[in-house]
Design a protein around this nucleic acid. Sequence first.
DNA 1: AAATAGTACCGAAAAGTTTCGATTTGCATA
DNA 2: TATGCAAATCGAAACTTTTCGGTACTATTT
Lengths: 342, 342
Amino acid sequence: MQNGRRLTLSAVARQAGVSVPTVSKVINGRTDVAAETRKRVLAILEESGYRSPVQHRRSLAAVPVVEVVVDSLNSGYTAEVLAGIMDSATAGGVEVLLSSTGSRGVAPNPEQRAQRLVDQGRCGMIVVTSAFGDAPLDAFHRRGVPVVVIDPLNPPSEEVVSVGCTDWAGAKDATAHLLALGHRRIAFLGGPEAVECSQARLHGYLAALRSQGIAAEDRYVLAGEFRSDDGARRLRDLLLLDPRPTAVVAASDTIALGVIAEALRQQVRIPQQLSVVGFDGIRQAEESVPALTTVAQPLRDIGRAALRIILRQVGGEVPDSRRVELATKLVVRESTAVPPGE
Amino acid sequence: MQNGRRLTLSAVARQAGVSVPTVSKVINGRTDVAAETRKRVLAILEESGYRSPVQHRRSLAAVPVVEVVVDSLNSGYTAEVLAGIMDSATAGGVEVLLSSTGSRGVAPNPEQRAQRLVDQGRCGMIVVTSAFGDAPLDAFHRRGVPVVVIDPLNPPSEEVVSVGCTDWAGAKDATAHLLALGHRRIAFLGGPEAVECSQARLHGYLAALRSQGIAAEDRYVLAGEFRSDDGARRLRDLLLLDPRPTAVVAASDTIALGVIAEALRQQVRIPQQLSVVGFDGIRQAEESVPALTTVAQPLRDIGRAALRIILRQVGGEVPDSRRVELATKLVVRESTAVPPGE
DNA sequence: AAATAGTACCGAAAAGTTTCGATTTGCATA
DNA sequence: TATGCAAATCGAAACTTTTCGGTACTATTT
């Protein structure tokens, strides 16, 4: 390719059959390039190994920074994942820029935000359990900024890597554990219905029941928020049913802890009268009384994995999978036992 | 100046009697411009009010960055403070760079680290509950980077602003609350003896006792770690004493939650047989059963305040105080009651 | 003093980016 | 069907930045 001179934009442009500005726009992630054209130009760029001067400078530049977007910090879940991210970050020599969406949802102006990201030499982004539309993701993708989404609320789009755990299998394990103890009336306290992982957990629960030939009862399945007070509320509803369920599978530890707290208040003894299984494996689950049996997600590992994936993408590797699922592990503690009256 | 067209480099260049590249170099701080020439060009630039496109973008986009150093993320305490910092950060339009010291202590090379901080345009630093020697702090101070320390483990040095809560008064309130209920044998489960806030809380406890003319018993005062398992361990020790204390003041909520959990295991009923007061006001304290009476630090407010102080210092203000203490508030919940046998 | 080397400074030319108008296309409307 | 309108796409031209070589000046050597 190189005939004496340095590799230049116009050479790439000529080969791609477009003008110099168009190539520049592709490199800088402008929107006014047809997808078709962009692809062709990118191919030539790839092949020729062209690097724009700014790209080049950036690759020499100081410590890479990864931006981490969280929805809120008040759950143990987020903190734990963040801790994992920090692990990998210090190990990998990158820094972490934390940004919180708060209640306002994500990024007022994704295009501008993405541009700022690359301007300031940020090399990737991790989104933790937030709804993230396709439009903003595209803004990052066009600029070649790798994005990893952890436990996305909405189904992740094509071009983004998502990291999570084996939600379906985990809920199935939890339910199977209760079935093995002899429970037959098992309730499920889910998360918001629209949320991806929530659905997977529900289906794991249903699958376990079905495999034992047990029909799921609608009134035992209550969707709600991933919050302890909403767990407490729903337990009150469950206790009004006749016959009562003898066990509860909660879609998160926060829900399960709410159930345990409310059970104590209602004089329902756990696990003698009611077994409870949580999901997530946050720290508080170990410390509750009785200690919570739960499906532990390797939250720290998930955080670590997310950052490693970013780093690999920055290094030019193509991720071998759009979805990474880490195995959950059922941790049996004190909140589950054989059903009452047996 | 503007004769119909937009203000452009070449106009400035013409007026200054130099070429366009030279003006560009002045703007971009290149070295190959004579001091004399630079001055002249700068004058014209000033006069004409020219802003280069990148300057313009930057003024729209550049967001100041504050570095936050935490020791670890696995306590609710840190997460809560961080949430407060994020509050102020989003409100104040700054970004937060998170860095974790982990177990390895702080900054391998403070001098270098401080330099990098200013190079990358970071405008301040917040240190959350970490030991932080004077040497690194000085490195920042010399470079004019404001540093705020939240609840420092060691006594903060002269040149740094520290933010905390009224530890002494808070512990005194907690103890007074128990005294008012009629308790006379009150134990104190402290943090590590060397830690500043831990000492203040101990002295608040002692002061409350003294004000009622009660002598502190050494065997009722146990130092230890800010961890729930260490709280549980120390409760076991307390229960062996004769006479047993009827109430416990814990120097942190984590300790207190450990006490509650262990009490449940040991069949000691709270608050009927033992009253417990915590300190911090983390989220889990609300959700425990029984709900924990605690001295709530305004953790979020502390985080918010820390960042605001940084921002004011960046704005050129001189902090009016080296030490900011936010008031604690005794939150009476279910874990305290009159002593048994009355 | 002359030659040489080194360096600071500048601008022509090359490279890259942005603006803006021209062209096309899709789609709703007359 | 014709017409208008808005959005998408692209490149020419305008603009900015960078590279690179030349000039002039100074210091050093011969």
